[in-house]
């Protein structure tokens, strides 16, 4: 008994010490994020929601501005605005709007309004790049906890609705006939997307969240034969890109968020080249 308690105490101390290292925290944040972006990214690719991801993540900048103006936590601001944007887009889509145009208008307007709004708030201008490109090296313990909490919540949500989501993605009619409501499953994805945006803002930044959803999933496509395999491989590819990007960033002193996406893109290129031979 005493030994167990001591062991736990030692492990706890070791963990805490480990978490003191900003690199470990950054690595864990990247891995945590990819747990959510892997499976969700697969759905974004299957349902051709790439632009949808853009609109939602660009809206996050507007969320940052609102949060700073109202002294709310930034995470709350981004979550609320991302969710509002995602729901708006989803309901416009359901009404049959021309999606590429609508999303183009909404995505870039949200970003522009956000950037302009942030410029009105004093003392933020210098920090803006942290929200646009992420600041994974500055992730605190609390933020790391939030990344994992958010990602696990998204993962649990997707796992719970998995069969219904896949059916609705393949064919809304088949889903309907089986008693599944496609609109509800769409809402599940919208909610998951907003959560991921809030969580990923710190890691890769608003401009590159969509890249982390799409590129690892696209990389995984050629190597998988089932949806589950693709989701798992996308998670793995995302985690590798995260760690690799951190390494690249340290080695060449490059911005970390973009470095992660660069590694992801290189993996995609290698993957598709390898498949062709």
């Amino acid at each position: 008994m005493a030994i167990t308690i001591r062991t736990i105490r030692i492990i706890t101390i070791m963990t805490m010490t480990m978490l003191d290292d900003f690199l470990i925290r950054a690595g864990l944040a990247a891995i945590g994020l990819s747990l959510a972006t892997g499976p969700l990214g697969a759905f974004v690719v299957w349902r051709r929601m790439a632009y949808f991801g853009d609109a939602t993540s660009h809206a996050a900048i507007l969320g940052v501005a609102l949060a700073l103006a109202t002294d709310l936590p930034v995470g709350v601001g981004t979550l609320v605005v991302a969710l509002a944007m995602a729901v708006t887009v989803a309901s416009l889509a359901a009404r049959g709007w021309a999606m590429d145009t609508t999303l183009g208008v909404l995505a870039h307007s949200a970003l522009a309004f956000g950037l302009v709004a942030v410029s009105f708030i004093h003392g933020v201008r210098t920090d803006l790049s942290a929200y646009l490109f992420g600041d994974i090296l500055a992730v605190t313990r609390v933020e790391l906890g939030l990344v994992w909490l958010g990602s696990l919540a998204v993962l649990a949500l997707l796992a719970w609705r998995w069969q219904a989501l896949l059916t609705a993605t393949l064919s809304e009619d088949l889903a309907h006939a089986a008693g599944i409501k496609p609109e509800r499953e769409r809402l599940v994805l919208v909610l998951a997307l907003a959560l991921v945006v809030a969580v990923a803002l710190k890691v890769v930044g608003a401009l590159l969240i969509a890249a982390m959803l799409i590129i690892p999933a696209a990389t995984a496509r050629g190597l998988s034969r089932t949806p589950e395999a693709m989701a798992a491989l996308a998670t793995l590819a995302g985690a590798i890109a995260g760690i690799g990007g951190l390494g690249l960033s340290l080695w060449q002193d490059t911005p970390t968020g973009p470095s992660i996406v660069v590694v992801a893109a290189l993996m995609f290129a290698v993957g598709s080249g390898w498949r062709r031979t």
Binding site: V45, W46, Q163, A164, L166, T167, T169, L170, L174, A175, A178, I180, A218, R221, S224, R225, T226, P227, A229, M230
Partner: peptide
Amino acid sequence: TMPITVRRFLSLPV
């Protein structure tokens, strides 16, 4: 973009 085998498809949604 969606990989799904015939066998996996037969298991949807049950």
